[in-house]
């Protein structure tokens, strides 16, 4: 049996598929949309290219050593080859890559020193993200599970944790940085174009670690300012009767024990702030879409959607009560 020529190409194309699939999409490091990510991008490609070249060279040399004419093989076994190819070349290549890497890191560090006029503090929780902005009047604005960035303006991220180590990774914006209990790691990021991308916790932090993601929304400066002003404000009053009933249920069933809704007496701090939860891209740290149906599903079934998460399941509601509660949460824009 003989394989046609096309076989080799098809095999290569097939094995590259998973790689290609992850190159596009909201969480790909290969479509950088931030200054940091843009600087890391060529480092990645350079390392990848050098790695590929070295691999090719080794394969060719091995083939020559095994099957080449005696003269080649004799050359290959000489001392010069050994010292040149085995010691000198790796030192040059690795030192080059190392220096390049240091330069990229240094550039990041220099940006970290520079003054920024916007700061966002992100705290890794089990298993969601608390996100605190600086409001227009300098007051802290509490939000969660989503990072909004103004395009073209450097923003300082302060990364913290009050439990175990997490790692904050928004691949299209910057590299990973750990969140370590008891200290604050800082990085200055800058989105280069308006876009929505996705990030993820990148350090195992227990039970629901794999289900701890978030969205990054980069928006034009004016839009961002309007958004922040709104985010800083209290929750809107429910307009529909159903949503008003939903608010009653929210309080009667103790949701305020763990959640804050600014402008009401719900002042809980154990779960995410829900003041404007309806305007977020996702629910439960990037796990679900954000619509009334998803709210209802989360309330009843959250331990199946996100096993071990810290919210108890609330299975007691009638269908009317549940849709009223969902309508209320959905109206919190």
């Amino acid at each position: 049996m003989r394989f046609g020529k096309g076989w080799v190409f098809r095999a290569i194309a097939l094995s590259a598929l998973p790689g290609i699939a992850s190159c596009s999409g909201v969480q790909s490091a290969l479509s950088p949309r931030g200054v940091e990510a843009l600087r890391i991008d060529p480092l990645f490609w350079t390392s990848a290219a050098v790695g590929l070249a070295v691999t090719l060279m080794v394969v060719i040399l091995v083939a020559a050593a095994l099957y080449g004419p005696p003269r080649w093989r004799e050359r290959l076994s000489g001392d010069r080859m050994l010292i040149g190819g085995g010691i000198v070349l790796p030192i040059i290549v690795l030192t080059g890559l190392f220096t390049y890497g240091l330069l990229v890191m240094q550039a990041g560090a220099v940006r970290g020193e520079q003054e920024t006029d916007a700061t966002v503090t992100i705290t890794g929780k089990l298993w969601w993200w608390e996100v605190v902005y600086e409001g227009p009047d300098g007051k802290a604005v509490l939000s969660a599970n989503e990072l909004r960035l103004p395009v073209g303006r450097p923003v300082r991220l302060r990364l913290e944790s009050d439990n175990v180590i997490h790692s904050f990774w928004a691949p299209q914006i910057a590299g990973k940085l750990d969140m370590i209990p008891g200290r604050t790691n800082e990085v200055v990021v800058e989105a280069t174009e308006p876009a929505v991308s996705r990030g993820q916790c990148a350090e195992y932090c227990g039970g629901a670690h794999a289900l701890m993601a978030f969205y990054v929304v980069a928006m034009a400066q004016a839009e961002y300012d309007a958004w922040l002003a709104r985010e800083a404000g209290p929750a809107v009053e429910p307009v529909s009767e159903e949503a008003a009933r939903g608010r009653e249920i929210f309080f009667e069933h103790g949701c305020g024990a763990c959640h804050q809704v600014r402008g009401t007496e719900a002042r809980g701090v154990i779960g995410p702030d829900l003041t404007h939860v309806g305007s977020r891209k996702s629910l439960a740290a990037g796990m679900m879409s954000n619509d009334a149906q998803a709210f209802a599903r989360w309330i009843v079934d959250n331990q199946h959607i996100k096993p071990e998460n810290k919210m108890p399941p609330f299975g007691q509601f009638s269908e009317e009560e549940l849709s009223a509660l969902a309508a209320y949460l959905d109206s919190l824009e």
Partner: peptide, 23 residues
């Protein structure tokens, strides 16, 4: 007020006044 660092919520949010007749 609960205990934030232990993820303990305020009991009275569920067991205080005006809460569900089932609590």
């Amino acid at each position: 007020n609960g205990v934030r660092e232990d993820d303990v919520p305020a009991c009275l949010a569920c067991h205080g006044e005006g809460t569900s007749a089932q609590f």
